[in-house]
Design a protein around this nucleic acid. Structure first.
Lengths: 227, 227
DNA sequence: CCCCCTTTTTAATCATTTGTTAACTGAGGA
DNA sequence: TCCTCAGTTAACAAATGATTAAAAAGGGGG
């Protein structure tokens, strides 16, 4: 899944240059040429990184930045300021408003790419480290939510743990015994038929709109998660 | 609590310059003049940020950086590379090894400070601003006031701390245990059911004029703040 | 020292989940 | 083809966990 870079810049020539280069790098790119609109778009689209011109019509880059950094929902989005003058004072002001980096125009595309890569690397892992995906299934261990085809699915605690366990080793077949030990716990005794019941409930829950059934039964062996 | 900056640099004059300036900024500073020793010290001291010379005796800065970025325990420590030549190739290589920023010698102390501040801000999530917003909720840590939809809400001290904690990591699910540790304090023992009661009061307080309930219950896991 | 406010505990109630049972289904070997 | 065995399914009772209200316990400030 590629990162989404948002450009807030009013010079058309720079926009197209940036867009061309960033898309070549594999990023999803969108932009706005006006401060007020930029802020609105950023809040709705929640990009992974923002390239922002220092000066913008309607609402300056500084203002947008301050605004974003106030809101918990957006203050994690890294901002790179594009500043025309290479003056020290401006750089410092940029950092003060909460920008994470700045680049002075004219800038080297290679260096900009490197800085973007660095900031993305820095912000991605903490937020996504506990999100695991398997085909069209996504499970978030932090928020305890499960999605299939981007639609949320609600599971009971046991079904959640069961799926969580399966997704750690997709395609591997587990016996009821193993499932009991790993999902229920070593020392808890329940009937092995109980596993069947929970498998069924899990199947029902993740079986949204005639998609492939993801859980395979292996006769006289156990179950596995399949693509 | 001030941040701890580690300097890996072999030129004595630069070390003393940096040390003087950084300590004036209020950082705790330590250093090493040799690569191998630097790596050892970093691993034992776990500084909050590293200033690293590109070239170092025994083990080059690049090597140290690669080594750190491999290890989960240390790859979150931001690294600023100090490079002698201002050549493009070096900058790019620095980023490739996992450095988070670079500064070319001779450098402006003011700019270096700004960059340090920026990186530290990024890695220390808690050091956020005094006014935080989350959707239509606003909390002012200075005046200890809370607003929903711009209408003021009155909370008891515990409810305030609870909400303040939740808003630092929205959507994340916290167990009662975690809430007790973070809101009440590590060594205070109260029944975990007590959390429920405060959750309830917080819910009641922020539930103004049929708006969405912002606190989600995750059965057998805990609670989270949702949009 | 007492009053008021907040916090904590307790316990009843409510809601959801879980495990069990037993009947049913279907695959595959004799 | 039929029989058997393993897996599926539905229904239900028990247990687990969350909500709620109300009482008890603290803890300053007047």
């Amino acid at each position: 899944m590629s990162a989404h870079v948002f450009i807030a810049e009013d010079e058309a020539s720079i926009i197209s240059l940036l867009k061309y280069n960033l898309e070549k790098e594999g990023y999803k790119v969108s932009h706005s040429e006006n401060g007020e609109d930029a802020l609105k778009q950023i809040k709705s689209k929640q990009p992974d990184l923002i390239l922002m011109d220092w000066m913008l019509p309607e609402l300056s880059g500084v203002e947008i930045c301050k605004n974003l950094k106030k809101d918990n929902k957006f203050n994690d989005i890294p901002v790179i300021m594009l500043t025309a003058k290479g003056e020290e004072e401006d750089k410092l002001k940029a950092f003060d408003t909460g920008a994470d980096d700045y680049v002075t125009k004219p800038f080297s595309q290679k260096e900009l790419n490197a800085r973007i890569k660095s900031l993305l690397r820095r912000s991605k892992p903490q937020s996504s480290s506990d999100i695991v995906e398997f085909t069209d299934l996504k499970i978030d261990r932090i928020t305890k939510r499960v999605y299939r085809k981007d639609k949320e699915i609600t599971l009971g605690p046991t079904e959640f743990k069961l799926l969580d366990f399966f997704i750690k080793n997709p395609k591997r077949v587990y016996s009821r015994e193993q499932l009991l030990n790993n999902v229920w716990g070593e020392d808890i005794y329940v009937e092995s038929r109980t596993v069947d019941v929970h498998i069924r409930r899990l199947r029902q829950a993740i079986n949204i709109q005639n998609t492939k059934p993801l859980i395979r039964t292996v006769r006289s062996a156990g179950y596995s998660l399949e693509s």
